[in-house]
Design a protein around this nucleic acid. Sequence first.
DNA 1: CGTTTTTGTGCGGGATTTTGCCCTATATTT
DNA 2: AAATATAGGGCAAAATCCCGCACAAAAACG
Lengths: 249, 249
Amino acid sequence: MLKKERQAYILHQINLHNKVLSSSLSVDINVSEDTIRRDLQELAEEGKVIKVHGGALSHSFSQVHFPANEVYSQNQKKKIAQKAISLISNGMFILTSGGTTILEMARSLPPQLKATFISGSIAAILEYMHHPNIEVILIGDRISKSSKITVGPEAIAKIRQMKADICFLGTNAIDLQHGITDNDWEVVQLKRAMIESSQKVVCLSIAEKINTFQPIHICELDKIDMLITELPSDDPLLKPYTDAGIKVL
Amino acid sequence: MLKKERQAYILHQINLHNKVLSSSLSVDINVSEDTIRRDLQELAEEGKVIKVHGGALSHSFSQVHFPANEVYSQNQKKKIAQKAISLISNGMFILTSGGTTILEMARSLPPQLKATFISGSIAAILEYMHHPNIEVILIGDRISKSSKITVGPEAIAKIRQMKADICFLGTNAIDLQHGITDNDWEVVQLKRAMIESSQKVVCLSIAEKINTFQPIHICELDKIDMLITELPSDDPLLKPYTDAGIKVL
DNA sequence: CGTTTTTGTGCGGGATTTTGCCCTATATTT
DNA sequence: AAATATAGGGCAAAATCCCGCACAAAAACG
């Protein structure tokens, strides 16, 4: 097999699988690993692949995943925030969890809006406080340092006492089979109470979290009234959820 | 699985869920926890995640810091803070108001200290949260945007329920004739409740505020057990207060 | 065509990287 | 205060890389 031929094959494999191992290529093409390594090195110098210890990665691999991701998902969250805000009207009592998606919503609230926001998330409260017209109610109790929200029986009791118009949940994982799940027991307790105390429950979730699950169960899907993602509402990924009776925005 | 591939996966998980546990990653990817720890360490050195005991956090998540700089007469407040801290010992329940002097104290708390701090001041809570060992209890209720603390009947009721070992009050004005006074009606209500609910009441006040008064009365001097200023305790300015039975530090 | 030069490939051996394991120190929980 | 979990450093085995070398095939050249 010619050198060029071999390199074309390698490039093909990389674009196909996003990665290759020197070892497996070696047995594939039946040449020594040194040869493969030299090929990879050349391809890397031409900028066609990214060489790493043990093989090589597709260029798209690191480009998509590493640097752009921060901004990328920020934009997704902005889109979600806009949709969520369209559900809010003046005079509402709104219960919110924490999480970066909720924060994005808090930052995007229109300045004229007059409503009451209730939360136990310190970060969310800080954002609400900057808003000129909204009333902010802070749920008190012990502060969980890991999640930076108030947790505990007092907080739950307080939430149980109220009946909010709408509840926005930053969702960590949603799945047809497991429903809404999360990974922090105390946060789960709080979210459950929030769901019970709201007339309408809205889940905010970026599409990546759709069809994933976490260890701790919060509730089944039938408790959820609405699901907001950055995708258009007729995206096939969301079809099962509309079929399950959830309104998708 | 290649190292870079693994790290990309970890990064992805962190950006998705804001946190990861070394243990769960280890079983996820099927490598030893040592490897995960080394990966997290590298990612942390590159500034892509924040490594914590047991796993790592998303960088965007813990960026909840108050722009707390340029405090008025900071050196004096540092001196006051040091004196106040000398009154605190392990296991105490400590009620604090807000104000920059209290913030200075919060920042200067020794890292080994284990105690429970209770407050309705958002800024103070943020400082306490950064401390590794102290337990933080947040008093909930409506947030006053002017003073950035929780105010209202719920907050007062909550404070009444507790009996703290000691209470630190950032004091706006203290005077032999008028006692402790302030200029925000809602804050005054809160401070009154705090005084009633504490075995020992300590006023923190820079010397400038000694012998001044404000429109709203909080309490008479006899409710105060201790007064801390940046001056030495035998300063003539403070003599009348020691004479009035207040311990001056 | 013969010789020289260039290029490609494999091999050996030492350096480097990666990984898992062990042991101790530190942190966290009970 | 004891028990458990996690971190950190050192070590060893395995994999991988790197470098020089040999050798052969191909190319270049007179």
